[in-house]
Design a binder for these strands. Structure first.
Length: 819
DNA sequence: GCGGATCAC
DNA sequence: TATGGTGATCCGC
């Protein structure tokens, strides 16, 4: 079995090793590669490329060599060029920052100083030193280095463990609410355990020594090991890692070691035990000991009054060590005092560079420049900086709420346009599967593109309601992709990465609400007010407004409309704008509607079975489109055929927005484009069933065969395929409000039957998917939550699980190891 | 809401 | 040899 080292670690390995370069040497090599006039750029780039040593415990590797390799290899590459470009952007930001700084008057500084000192006093007042937070960090990286250096070890199983397993196994005993952060880190709040443990009998603090433990190496001389047993496990223990020379258990008093037998019996009785004390240090010793017994991997740990400090502490004596900041203010400030800001979680390369430009390198600098900082940075930022400089952080472990986005992306060698669409579809498919696993429905689709020059672009669209299937996601993503293709046309899009992200998930409460509405709507004998279903307020709560930014479809329509406007009179255009109608979701009749209220009244009547056709006719001369565009549920806007089409002989447009909420059964994406002006007809129909991705169906008989286009043709077709859009000459085309598909039939009865089927499919699916629990709709709260605080280490939020779980699963060695 | 950018792991 | 994937947040617009 090979080394289960993920790419993250590989890259980290390279970067961190490179990070050990001596500054002057780094500068030299940078100067060789760049314009020598631009010294700052060279240094900046090195910082950008991760060549600044931020990690502790990095001694002994040939840093210069690695540095040189990276720089030499990068020279002239697209990647390198892009790094340079990004670095220049940061430099520009810094220039602006300094310009701003120069405009600041002494008076402003003095005023800011007073204000900041107020905040400092308040923060000091609220300083909480009562908690004992532990940050555990597995030393997997060092194990990986060891494995690399000892090729003969590669075939031996080694655990690159996940903290969630140590959940269950060890960590939960110390803090049932402990917080795993990814695969190799976890936070624990051991405050309560510390109290309880004081009364614990020694037997509860005693642990058997089953295998060699480097966590006990500080007391190694006091333990007698069975040599034969030791050699069995030697493969998992790197001499470099476990040797006395790098042991750094600085603050250990050390647990009492007990032999089950007398000394003279030890050679025949290998079983030993060790008793850990009741102090925080001993507890963490115990945790690390037990982790190592379980996984044969060492861990480092930090103990401090808050999470930010604990995390930095775990870095202090890495690898295989621990460090504690006692809970008093002076100790905290002493630790913080000379600490480089780059060591603070949340302060990355760019922030470091910007602060450095202001002469801020250490946390003390940060504190001293608090007035300046408050004038140059946003409030979120300077509050964050101020807390850092005071050594303040979160004292409780907050679990993350609901997931906010889900994405998948892939890097590849340059591919053709057709392949790009195909890949896009695959990404959507993957995403849809993941969404299904978590039962999520999203509102926003974001396409991420990185071109061969490493330039990254994202393009997003928010749809009216929610989407979750491959077809639904792809319908949006392919528009975005097509739009970008159009932007660079006639050149092809030259990509190296494509990604699709969905966000804006329906909360659990919203799901319930939506489901309830639909069920009530259909439930016979149970009346639900139509206004509740379709009123502006209700709809706005359930479905977001359409995006300000128009989709590719809409942009296309807009373009067409503009073209039209140039050939039609302004009067006709005005008529066009005024004429519209709604389709009643109950009787499916068209209604020219003077107001939303009137339309709602009609639906109410329909629902109660008293609706007459006259109602529809009584609604006319509507200008409600503008007012109801955000509502647009089952609404439809079109030309007045009688007024426009007959007079002008021009195209008649159908513009519709359909609720996706119940759209759970769309199997085939069928879109017809028919442009009478230029005699161009296109049919773009794709079957999106997984099994039939390449199936090609022609569901329309009216389309000219000459101009047929399909998305997934073989590469022989070199023409860029732009997303299609509905553009009908016949405004009587019926669009199913559930599946959003145009129906071939013009028979209303047949059409209604189709809608019924669609609707039922959706309901059944939702009923089987959703579990029951009551709750109130709280969309507003959800949407603002993300802006409340910054997500830095001081405020710990648990990472989302699904993708992490994926990567966990990929580590087959872990599972087998823990078994 | 969108897009670019930063950061963590 | 040739520079990753996922998720979150912030900021300016």
């Amino acid at each position: 079995m090979g080394l289960p080292l993920c790419q993250v670690r590989k890259l980290q390995l390279v970067q961190n090793m490179a990070a050990r370069g001596k500054p002057e040497k780094l500068l030299d090599s940078a100067m060789e590669n760049e314009n020598k006039d631009d010294v700052s750029s060279g240094v900046g780039l090195l910082l950008r490329m991760g060549l600044n040593d931020n990690k502790a415990g990095m001694q002994g590797l040939d840093k210069e060599k690695i540095n040189k390799i990276i720089m030499e290899a990068s020279k002239g590459s697209k990647f390198y060029e892009n790094e340079l470009k990004k670095d220049q952007q940061v430099n520009k930001r810094i220039e602006k920052l300094l310009e701003l700084k120069n405009k600041i008057t002494d008076q402003q500084i003095m005023k800011a100083q007073l204000q900041m000192d107020q905040f400092v006093m308040e923060m000091e007042r609220n300083r909480d030193l009562s908690c004992t937070i532990v940050h555990i960090d597995m030393d997997a990286f060092y194990a990986a280095v060891e494995m690399r250096d000892n090729p003969e070890l590669r075939d031996k199983p080694i655990a690159v463990g996940s903290m969630s397993m140590l959940v269950r196994e060890i960590l939960a005993e110390y803090d049932p609410h402990f917080l795993p952060m990814g695969l190799d880190e976890a936070y624990l709040n051991i405050t309560e355990h510390l109290e309880e443990r004081k009364n614990w009998d020694e037997s509860k603090r005693k642990h058997l020594i089953k295998t060699n433990s480097s966590a006990l190496d500080g007391k190694q001389k006091r333990i007698m090991y069975d040599e034969s047993k030791l050699s069995e496990n030697a493969h998992s223990c790197s001499p470099d890692l476990f040797g006395d020379d790098i042991l750094k258990c600085k603050q250990n008093v050390g647990p009492l070691l007990h032999s089950e037998e007398e000394e003279h019996q030890q050679s025949t009785a290998p079983t030993k035990s060790v008793v850990f004390g009741t102090s925080a240090e001993e507890i963490v010793e115990e945790i690390r000991f037990r982790i190592e017994q379980k996984t044969r991997l060492t861990a480092s740990a930090g103990i401090a009054p808050n999470t930010m400090l604990a995390k930095m502490c775990s870095d202090q004596n890495k690898p295989n060590g621990q460090y504690r900041i006692p809970p008093d203010r002076e100790a905290v400030m002493n630790f913080i005092k000379d600490l480089a800001i780059r060591k603070v979680p949340g302060i990355g390369k760019v922030t470091e560079k910007m602060l450095r430009a202001l002469g801020i390198v250490t946390c003390t600098d940060l504190y001293q420049q608090r007035a300046l900082i408050s004038l140059l940075f946003s409030e979120t930022s300077w509050r964050n900086f101020l807390e850092i400089s005071l050594g303040l952080g979160s004292t409780h472990l907050e679990r993350d709420g609901e997931r906010k986005s889900m994405s998948t992306e892939r890097t590849f060698n340059e591919i053709s346009t057709e392949e790009q669409y195909k890949l896009c579809k695959e990404l959507c498919s993957d995403l849809a599967q993941d969404l299904k696993k978590e039962g999520l429905k999203a509102r926003t689709v974001t396409l991420k593109l990185k071109n061969i020059n490493f330039e990254v672009k994202t393009r997003a669209t928010t749809v009216l309601s929610t989407i979750s299937t491959e077809e639904e996601i792809f319908a949006v993503a392919k528009d975005l992709l097509g739009s970008e293709m159009e932007n660079v046309a006639p050149q092809p899009l030259r990509l190296r990465l494509m990604g699709v992200r969905v966000s804006g998930f329906l909360t659990e409460d919203e799901k319930k609400y939506q489901q309830k509405s639909i069920v009530n709507f259909l439930e016979p004998g149970k009346q639900v007010s139509a206004s509740k279903l379709f009123s502006r307020k209700s709809v706005e709560e359930n479905f977001p407004r359409p995006p300000d930014r128009e989709s590719f479809f809409n942009k296309k329509r807009a373009t067409r409309q503009q073209d039209m406007a140039s050939v039609t009179s302004s009067v006709d255009q005005a008529k066009y704008n005024e004429c519209q109608f709604f389709i009643c979701p109950v009787c499916f009749e068209e209604h020219q509607d003077s107001s939303l209220e009137a339309f709602n009244r009609h639906i109410d009547k329909c629902l109660s079975g008293t609706s007459g056709k006259d109602d529809a006719k009584s609604m006319n001369n509507s200008k409600a489109w503008e007012n109801t565009s955000d509502l647009s549920l089952y609404s439809k806007k079109k030309d007045c055929q009688k007024d426009n089409a007959s007079n002008q002989g021009t195209e008649v447009q159908a513009n519709y927005v359909v609720d996706y909420a119940t759209n759970t059964s769309m199997d085939i994406c069928s879109i017809v484009q028919n442009n009478e002006h230029n005699n161009e007809s296109r049919c773009i129909i794709s079957s999106d069933r997984a099994s039939g991705m390449h199936e090609k169906q022609d569901l329309t008989s009216e389309v000219s065969s000459v101009e047929k286009r399909e998305y997934f043709e073989e590469p022989k077709c070199t023409e860029i395929k732009l997303p299609c859009f509905s553009y009908m000459s016949d405004n009587k085309i019926l669009v199913c409000p559930v599946c959003n598909l145009e129906q071939k039939t013009k028979d209303l009865a047949l059409f209604n039957r189709h809608v019924d089927i669609c609707l039922n499919k959706g309901i059944i699916k939702q009923l089987t998917e959703n579990s029951s629990s009551a709750g109130t709709l709280d969309r507003e709260q959800h949407s603002t939550a993300s802006t409340i605080g910054t997500k830095r280490a001081g405020k710990i939020l648990q990472q989302s699980t699904s993708k992490k779980a994926k990567s966990t699963n990929s580590k087959c060695t872990i599972e087998s190891f823990f078994k």
